[in-house]
Design a protein around this nucleic acid. Sequence first.
DNA 1: CGAGGCGTTGAATGGCCTCAACGATGGTGG
DNA 2: CCACCATCGTTGAGGCCATTCAACGCCTCG
Lengths: 235, 235
Amino acid sequence: MVKNVTLREAWSGEADCRNCSLRASVLFAGLEEKDFERIHDPIDQFVIKPGTALYHAGDDGDHLFTVRSGTCKLVQYLPDGGQRIVRLARTTDVIGLEALVEDHYEHDAVAVQPTEICRFPARVVRMLGRDNPKLHRELMARWQRALSEADAWLTELSTGSARQRVARLLLRLVRDQDSSECELFSREDMGAMLGITTETTSRTIAEYKRQSLLVEVTPNFFLLDIPNLRRIAEE
Amino acid sequence: MVKNVTLREAWSGEADCRNCSLRASVLFAGLEEKDFERIHDPIDQFVIKPGTALYHAGDDGDHLFTVRSGTCKLVQYLPDGGQRIVRLARTTDVIGLEALVEDHYEHDAVAVQPTEICRFPARVVRMLGRDNPKLHRELMARWQRALSEADAWLTELSTGSARQRVARLLLRLVRDQDSSECELFSREDMGAMLGITTETTSRTIAEYKRQSLLVEVTPNFFLLDIPNLRRIAEE
DNA sequence: CGAGGCGTTGAATGGCCTCAACGATGGTGG
DNA sequence: CCACCATCGTTGAGGCCATTCAACGCCTCG
């Protein structure tokens, strides 16, 4: 649905925010006609392939991004070279918020699925935010959402045994879904989200498959046994 | 109940924000005389003892708090009853920001040292934030600071061996300090920050003391061997 | 003085990591 | 079209490190 609408105009470059199919839930939700008239900068819209980076940590932060569909990982690096995925951004999430306050990005933002992106200048948001209470409120809500996510990753995905963490991640992936079906990421990425190794992740997933807690319906799409996974997650 | 009694007893007067000694670095830094005239609600100021809770997760969130001195931990609970400390708030930090956007608090906020607090109504901040760009900007900066902290806890304090995590926590505790001396928390709290057990924390600290990476100058105040701790943290 | 909290230490277990090998898959070039 | 290679998921074996359960000393406080 959403996907069809946008794929039609994909690659075309300039977005039509007034008629955006996600308008109701997007950062610019509260904007009115007079606000749009003040946006003179182009708002680009494009699709990126898995593995493509939107930006890297330390890059000049002059754009914000809205994820229209797909998924991006936000990655931070450790002194020893290891990496840790600190958050996922999915439909309607905004990434690069730090560009409003700081002069550089904090993470690498990399697509892990084919991902539709809208990109708009931080300057536009700063300008509109100054005297638009609705946008102001929308910004606060998004910052708070990111913060809640970050806290949840600490308590749910970085605490307890590997079995528990994997189960919690799986449950989290289907939570805001219509069905109890979900697509998995690479074992390496899942490990980087959970603070465990690729091998341990693989072993755990394989065990869940053998126990039919996970059933592969189509390649890389799994049906979850939610009650039993929840039991593991909470025990 | 107990909490309210303590808070009331600790009340040490109505704050004089105009002449606040922390004014330059506090949330209300950008306010002018005309703004203060619009604050009709009282801004309380008090001291709480270690172990006292400012609020609990789920409480009605109608106040924000500034930490003037001391330290508060923000705690989240797991389904199995375990607890995880997701952040520390120290001088000039604001806690309870979520009250601006949601109707309840996300964590337990508990003092871990004698702590001076200013408390002000969320509705005052909401009102002033609507048309005060400086406060607006200040709020965004604080949200971003909290988010950066959360991400750092994931990458630095929840990744790697227990030795590394403890070392990174110690370095973090002295970082915004004038000396390389710091006060430690209980082993239980440190474990809850690092996602490791109390015993492992104690063993690691004890080992560092034997190796003179930590030297106790006065009871519970330690001098850190920063270069060598940094080596451990990054190896 | 006894009780309880806290830090420390010991011993044993087990879970996760490390290193390694192997099959399946998919893309590439001959 | 197929041989070749790289990547990814899986599995095994072995070892280390953190957890678990327990005990003990020290301290404060009632």
